[in-house]
């Protein structure tokens, strides 16, 4: 995970109406989902420590292929 923190000079120019309900639900669940996400990221790091695997990138989506077929 790497963040390039760049100064935001201009306000975003959203043209969609995000919808009140859709904003409120995000506020409601963001903390919990963020927590779950952190646990997931660190769990992966711990697993890597034991399996000795090098730092693999987080999952990359690829189009449905044979790998998905085998699931």
């Amino acid at each position: 995970m790497h963040f390039e923190l760049l100064p935001v000079v201009v306000k975003p120019m959203a043209y969609l109406d995000p919808g009140s309900g859709s904003i409120l639900i995000q506020m409601l669940v963001a903390a919990a989902l963020g927590g779950a996400y952190l646990i997931k990221v660190y769990w992966k790091k711990i697993k890597r420590l034991f399996t000795g695997k090098t730092d693999e990138p987080l999952e990359q989506p690829d189009q449905t292929d044979e790998a998905a077929e085998k699931k």
């Binding site: 009140s20 904003i23 995000q26 903390a31």
Partner: peptide
């Protein structure tokens, strides 16, 4: 949530700054 809040105005001062980057990534 959409149905409950349909047609209600949202106080934007209360919604600002509430979802940090980790929360966003979690979403």
């Amino acid at each position: 949530m959409q149905q409950k809040n349909a047609g209600k105005a949202l106080d934007s001062t209360k919604t600002r700054g509430r979802i940090n980057r980790i929360g966003f990534l979690g979403l």
